[in-house]
């Protein structure tokens, strides 16, 4: 077992708990930055260098700056910590039930032979030839080049649709905030 994974996982979980337990939204935002950075280093361990860079630039850079900016703009007063009432007990219980269900399903789909993961049940039946990207094959060309090759050939349509989605989101955000400024 890789000790770095344990350490990063512990950091991610502790800062995630601090995210939902902080009394001020700014502390929550800083905790989320720590979680995101820990997860990005896990991506690096998992040989996903491109996602490591994207995670740092888009999440820790753009999205969290936007969050902090909005928090500073709205200046919300410190909310009291979540009250321990039946709502909270019910929420935590529902989360635990959902997590156990997901964990059971995830454990049953992974096919393990001789101590190695050989495939997920659905994926192996659907596309047996798509599992050709071994570590050596990816490293021969570089992670970014290999992902770009996939993005611009196999996944070209989702890539173009996502650019349209970003355009619509930007236009929608401008419309929402601009209309509010004129005084509702």
């Amino acid at each position: 077992m890789n000790w770095a994974l344990w350490l990063l996982g512990a950091i991610a979980v502790i800062s995630a708990i601090s995210l939902i337990w902080s009394s001020h939204a700014l502390y929550s935002a800083l905790s989320l930055v720590v979680t995101i950075c820990a997860l990005s280093v896990i991506f690096l361990i998992l040989n996903a260098q491109f996602l490591f860079a994207v995670q740092i630039i888009v999440y820790a850079g753009a999205v969290m700056v936007l969050f902090v900016f909005i928090i500073a703009l709205l200046n919300p007063r410190a909310e009291e910590r979540p009250r321990v009432d039946w709502h909270m007990v019910l929420g935590i219980l529902a989360s635990i039930v959902a997590a156990v269900g997901v964990w059971t399903m995830a454990g049953s789909t992974a096919v393990v032979q001789n101590g190695k993961i050989r495939g997920a049940v659905v994926g192996r039946i659907a596309h047996p030839s798509s599992f050709a990207y071994t570590e050596q094959a990816v490293n021969a060309h570089g992670n970014v080049q290999t992902i770009a090759g996939q993005l611009f050939t196999t996944y070209l349509l989702p890539f173009e649709v996502s650019s349209l989605l970003l355009l619509v989101a930007a236009a929608g955000a401008v419309y929402l905030t601009h209309h509010a400024r004129k005084g509702l």
């Binding site: 929420g91 989360s95 997590a99």
Partner: peptide, 10 residues
């Protein structure tokens, strides 16, 4: 699970 709990209790 932690994220879902946060959505439910905050």
């Amino acid at each position: 699970m932690i994220g879902a709990t946060g959505v439910l209790i905050r």
